[in-house]
């Protein structure tokens, strides 16, 4: 032990009773991590209530990556806050319980690239509840015939999974294909939407 450690002990052992972390008002970006029926998701909203992410975060690393992206692209004022995210949490719950045919929220595609924005808005506009399409068909529908692979990549990085329904896009060759939330989550959503109303 160095003399410094023992010498500063009276100060180091100073451990007042702390009441807890500061209580800060919601700011530019509020988020929660929610355990949904299809997996662990990061729900983030702007100060105006628009939804920035409903993204799968299976582990702490994925959570960190999305939070870093929010900090860089929207604002570094990112705080964990349940209240501002209540609306999106409820909307997601309603959809996943089969009570709603879409996640009824206003979205904000700041985290998407221009191409992703094109693909995701085209998808939401053209492929309805219970419907399915393929990467190639969607590519043609959004004006990029032959760009099936690029469309697949764009959907793979969807910041608004479930809300913007990339789970309805399947490979032409069969099977459910890839999904940020894992194939089981994708199958769960497809089964949910094919249930008779």
């Amino acid at each position: 032990m160095t003399p410094m450690t023992s010498a500063t002990d009276p100060f180091r052992s100073f451990s007042p009773t702390l009441t807890g972390p500061p209580r800060l008002a919601p700011t530019d970006v509020s988020y929660v991590v929610d355990d949904t029926a299809v997996g662990r998701m990061l729900l983030a909203v702007r100060d105006d209530g628009r939804v920035l992410t409903t993204a799968y975060v299976p582990d702490a690393g994925a959570e960190e990556r999305w939070l870093a992206r929010l900090a860089a692209a929207v604002s570094p004022r990112v705080l964990r806050h349940p209240r501002p995210t209540d609306a999106v949490r409820r909307a997601l719950e309603d959809y996943l319980a089969g009570r709603a045919r879409r996640v009824e929220v206003e979205t904000d595609l700041t985290l998407a690239s221009d191409f992703q924005r094109e693909v995701l808005t085209g998808l939401a506009a053209s492929v309805g509840y219970g419907e399915r399409t393929t990467y190639a068909v969607l590519a043609a529908a959004v004006g990029h015939p032959g760009a099936a692979r690029a469309v697949g990549t764009a959907l793979g990085g969807n910041p608004l999974c479930v809300t913007l329904p990339c789970h309805r896009v399947l490979p032409a060759s069969g099977g459910v294909g890839g999904y940020a939330g894992g194939p089981a989550a994708k199958e769960h959503l497809l089964a949910l939407e094919s249930r008779p109303a």
Binding site: G20, L24, T27, L67, A71, P76, V78, L79
Partner: peptide, 14 residues
């Protein structure tokens, strides 16, 4: 790029 402010709170509030 700055880290999300929540990191600062979690790491340094004590």
């Amino acid at each position: 790029s700055l880290p999300p402010f929540q990191h600062l709170v979690d790491e340094h509030w004590r």
